[in-house]
Design a protein around this nucleic acid. Structure first.
Length: 283
DNA sequence: AAGTAGTCCTGAGTGC
DNA sequence: TGCACTCAGGACTACT
């Protein structure tokens, strides 16, 4: 469930506890999540300084002073807990270990980072920093929505000739990085594009509107995540999925919020996933 | 090549 | 109360 905004919120929550500090000890409680952890992961993390935390799509990347980069993917149910931060940004004590605490990073500064993931769709990997762009998980990912290479000409080219439904195309990480089921539904609603419409049959005008709409949908959510971050700092330190209000996602049968529209939100299934949309507003 | 279906996993929710 | 069942979904793999 964590999509780009949630992952960015997690990255921002981890940064003050990790950037510039040394991993004093890495506790690895199982051999794998979705895939086996890389060989000797605990040893390769221990004693390394985190130079910076980056994000690419839905992946968090921690560049280490060993020349390696640690990749963290939250999958569907992954959460991060920050506790015991001596800088006072996370004021609570270390909590008792929970079920599904798979990896715990003990920082030299006293902070503790706990990666908890009940469904184990998450992942971790380690590789040479200068090989990051060639990593199989990162190599085929499309442009970042906030990057310069995501613009109208790019999106027009990416949609041209594609008969695939718009919903499916935007969910494809090769088209654009970081969108998941929720924000695709929201972006299509705001741009009034019907989710089943073949990509090649969306007008250039609508496509050009879609570019800023995707950015706004995501930045609104990041802003909401930022406010929940401030709450986390006072509360339990848990970083992951946050409450956010949606126009269509999860609102099957509820009234459309477009002023003057009397329709109710519908749910259909596309390639095995729920799509929510307004049958009147989206064409 | 492009598109779809199946797969992994656990917990929450629902119906009987 | 408990059991069986369905659903959630990111992203890979294996088909058509």
């Amino acid at each position: 469930m964590p999509e780009l905004p949630e992952v960015e919120t997690v990255r921002r929550g981890l940064a003050p506890a990790m950037e510039g500090d040394v991993i004093a000890r890495a506790e690895v409680n199982r051999p794998d999540l979705r895939w086996p952890f890389p060989a000797n992961m605990a040893d390769r993390l221990t004693g390394k300084r985190v130079l910076r935390l980056r994000r690419r799509s839905k992946y968090i990347l921690a560049d280490l002073d060993s020349g390696e980069t640690a990749l963290i993917h939250l999958g569907m149910s992954g959460r991060m807990l920050v506790s015991g931060d001596p800088l006072g940004q996370f004021v609570h004590d270390h909590p008792a270990a929970q079920k599904h605490d798979h990896v715990v990073l003990h920082m030299e500064n006293g902070a503790r980072i706990t990666f908890n993931d009940p469904r184990r769709f998450g992942a971790m990997d380690l590789f040479a920093t200068d090989q990051a762009e060639a990593h199989p998980l990162l190599a085929t990912i499309g442009p970042e929505p906030f990057g310069n290479s995501f613009d109208e000409p790019y999106l027009v080219a990416a949609l041209t000739g594609r008969k695939t439904p718009m919903k499916t195309v935007l969910l494809d990480q090769k088209t654009i990085a970081g969108l998941g089921n929720i924000y695709v539904c929201e972006a299509l609603f705001r741009s009034q594009i019907h989710p089943t419409r073949p990509a090649c049959r969306v007008s250039k005008d609508r496509i050009s509107r879609l570019v800023p709409i995707i950015r706004t949908v995501l930045s609104d959510a990041i802003e909401a995540g930022g406010s929940s971050l401030r709450d986390f700092r006072q509360a339990d330190g848990e970083l992951g999925y946050f409450q956010h209000s949606f126009d269509v996602y999860g609102r099957e049968g509820a009234p459309c919020r477009t002023p003057g529209c009397t329709s109710t939100i519908r749910r259909i299934v596309q390639s095995g996933r729920s799509t929510f949309y307004c049958p009147s507003c989206q064409r």
